[in-house]
Each structure stands twice: as C-alpha cells, then as structure tokens.
Design a protein around this nucleic acid. Structure first.
Lengths: 237, 237
DNA sequence: CGATACACGGTTATCAGACAACCCTACAAG
DNA sequence: CTTGTAGGGTTGTCTGATAACCGTGTATCG
C-alpha cells in the first residue's frame, strides 16, 4: 500500500482568502482598529467575486479577528479578544510544540481526575468501564485502542460534572491524539500497550474508589509516562 | 445619566440561522453524519435567500459542526471533533456556570504561575511590573483596574514561554472578566481593591524571585479569594 | 454476465448585478 | 449653535445564472 501525497486541489477559495487576510493581520500589515479595504476592492484585488470575499470576512468575523459594521466597513479586532480558541493541527507537528501542549494538558487532566473521583455518578463509571474494556479488547491499538483511549478521557472529563472540562479537555485530547497519529506515528508493542492500559486502570480504580488525590497522581504519572514514550520530557512540578 | 437598555435590533440574519441549525444539531434533530437539507430548501424554510443560508452554513463549517462536499451536500460532523472551542458569554451568566469556569481556570493559572516563575525573562518581568503599576495607579478600578488585571494575567501566561498557555488563559481570563462585569457587576471598595492588588503583588514577587511553589500557591489563593468576593466557593484540592 | 464509459439530474461553489439598510459627513435651515 | 436633510459610500440581502462536482442509472462492449 503506497501512501500517496494528498494534493489539496484548488480548494475553497474563501478559506484561502481568509487565511491570506488573516496573515495580513497577524503579520501586522493591518493594525488593531484599522479598516480593511472594502469588499469591492478586495474582490478586485484577489480576482474573485464579492461573495467569496464576504464569506472570507465572515470567517474572520467568526474567529473574532475582525468586526463588521453595516454601512461602515470591516475593522480589525483587538487581537486579545478572540471569540474562539483554535489550535491548528499543523502547529502541533514539531516536538517542542507538542511538549508545550502536553504541559497545558497535564494540570487540567490531573484536576479533572480529582474532580471526577469526587463527583462521578454510576452512569459515568459505566462509561469508564466501557472505555477501559474497549482498550483491553482492542485488536488494533492504533485504531480501536486509540478510540477507546479518547473515550476514556472524555468520560473522565464528563464525570467532573463540569461542562467546561468536557469542552476543553475533549478538544485538547482529540488534538493530541490526532497530532500523535499524524506527526509522530509509532508502533505500539504488546508490552507498551499493556503498560498503557495498566495506567488507565489505575486512574479508573482511584476514580471509582472516590480517592481524589490518588486519581490525580495516577493521571499525572500516566501523562508523564505517555509523553516519555514519545520521547518528550515533562517538567515535574 | 440614565442608563438605557441596549436593544439588540434584528441583527445578522446568517448568525441567527446558524444558531438555529446549530440548535437542531445539538438538540439531536440531526444526528452525526446526517445530511442537512439542501441550501435551496433551507432558504425556502427560513424565508431568506440562499446567500444567507450559505453564510450560515459556512459559519457552522468554521466551527466544525458540519462538513460540506461540493455536489453532495452538508453533513453533520462528529460532535466530538469540533475544530474550535467557543464559550458563549451567555452561558456564563449564572453563578453555577461561573463557578465551573473558575474551577477550570484554577489549575491552569496555578501551573502557569509555577512555569512563569521558572521561565520568565526580563521582558516579561517588565510587563508584570507595568501591569501591577497600572493596578496601583488606576483611578477607576472597574475600567483601568480591570484592564491592568487582565494585562497582568496575560503577561504571566506569556512568561510561561508556552504559547498554548497564552492562548487558553488569555481567552479564559478575558471571558471571566467580561462575564463578571456584565452579569455580576459590583462595587469595589478601596479596601477590597487594596487586597486584590496585594494578592497580585504576592504572585508578582514569587515569580520575579523564581520561586515556583510559592508563585503557584499565591495564585491559588488569589483565585480562591477572588471567587469568594463574588460569593463563589471553590473546592480546595 | 461483467465491466467500463457515458449521460443525466441534483447539489454545492462561484459569479454578476441590483436593491435595501445603514452610517458618516457636509451643508442648509431655523 | 442646534437640528434637519441630502448625498455618497459600505455592508447586508436578494435574485438569477453558470461552473464544478458527485452519485446513479443506463448503454455499450468484451
């Protein structure tokens, strides 16, 4: 099975234009508060129709980079008040960034484990059971195993009874997983799989037992080890 | 100076329609993988033109809720792989949600303080100095003071030398601040302002001194106290 | 019978032009 | 000096048309 390069075609004009303008903003060609050229001029500049420019600007508006006022124009927003958080997959491709991402994830997951140990309900314990079982049963770790792993962390976040942990950790875990699979693919020997499952089982046990400190410690160890398996060393605090 | 209610007009058709469709997805009327009605039908349904529907769908695509394939249709994405994190301001309006949000912020800020103490550079120390000074000098706390407060936390996040802390904490701190000012406005007596500044000074001192544990503890206390001033009790872990 | 090629309808992507809603400014009127 | 009004410019929305693309069915050929 030869893996071909997936060529991006001439895909999605608005997206490319949005990125182009976005670069202009990030690169400082447009300062905060500046007025963008009119849609008409932008359309002319890029050689596309106004619809495309409008969609591009709409995207930037969604991301909170510009604000539009009818009859006036589009203005660059204060870069510090983005409406959304977005982490480009590409920005997690190098080891240093991945390490930084792990460093962000660590305290959140640890606290989530503690909170889950205190607030988990039978429904979430069942979800954790199912996820752990899915890891054990997985025939192909890189597919089923990874999915079960994600499900485990998601169930844990849900068990905190705190919607924001579910949102943020769900996103972060997903990004991490995807990044590892695409940028740092690796073989998982049977032994390593076993160890990984064991670490999850430790977290699971502590959470079910309602032992918050132990759950937090188990999670910390899991993440540190998990990073180590990728050749990443996390600071221990 | 009588303060009028700011009425929201009938603003932005595409946004409202995007929210409408988004509710349909979140509410389960469209399952993951389902195909949305065609743009033509949607336009007819909502009584608007196709342009508006297109912009609405473009917004949903940006948020990662749907994927479109030319010549085929728009499909609901797996809700677990949203491309962005977005916290609606309105969802922070009630005390319980705000408490949960604080609970998410706490471990991140604490770890950020520790990391900042280890990795801060002269430039960031200067930024922290400036922010602290801005709090002291502020004549109107609700305006200048809050801004300096935000700047302080942003500078601290920057001092971690970890881009993701800057992104996430910048967003979270901003949301928190806005939410407090809009949903839980309160008077800040001179005494309380003084205490608040003192807490920041403690963090500042520990970070400058390079004392990671002390910085973390100071931050933890600051957040717990800060929440307490809003009548919110955080779990101590 | 099986497989390839092709035509067709449906859908999204893009274009083009027009009008509506709105804002800002300047100027006139009181 | 304040208020009313007209004008031009910009974004918001509408309408209709064309291009690009996909899936499916059908016909053709081996």
């Amino acid at each position: 099975m030869s893996s071909f390069q997936q060529l991006s075609r001439t895909e999605h004009l608005p997206k490319r234009i949005a990125e182009e303008i976005g670069r202009g903003i990030a690169g400082g060609r447009f300062a905060s508060g500046d007025k963008l050229p009119t849609e008409h001029i932008l359309a002319q500049t890029f050689g596309v129709s106004r619809s495309v420019v409008r969609e591009a600007i709409a995207q930037l508006r969604n991301e909170g980079m510009v604000e539009t006022r009818q009859g006036v124009g589009a203005f660059v927003t204060d870069p510090q008040r983005r409406a959304t958080i977005r982490v480009e997959q590409a920005s997690l491709a190098d080891p240093v960034s991945l390490r930084n991402f792990f460093q962000l994830r660590l305290p959140l997951e640890v606290e989530a484990a503690r909170l889950a140990a205190r607030h988990r309900t039978p429904a979430e314990i069942a979800a954790l059971d199912a996820a752990l079982d899915g890891m054990v049963q997985a025939r192909d770790w890189l597919d089923e195993g990874v999915k079960a792993d994600l499900a485990f962390h998601r169930a844990l976040a849900a068990a905190t009874q705190n919607e924001f942990y579910a949102i943020f950790l769900g996103y972060i875990a997903e990004k991490t997983s995807t990044s590892i699979n695409t940028s740092f693919p690796r073989e998982m020997g049977a032994e390593i799989v076993k160890v990984t499952i064991g670490e999850h089982a430790a977290i699971h046990g502590a959470v079910v037992a309602g032992d918050a400190p132990r759950a937090g410690e188990a999670m910390r160890q899991h993440l540190i080890n998990s990073a180590a398996r990728l050749g990443i060393t996390l600071e221990t605090s």
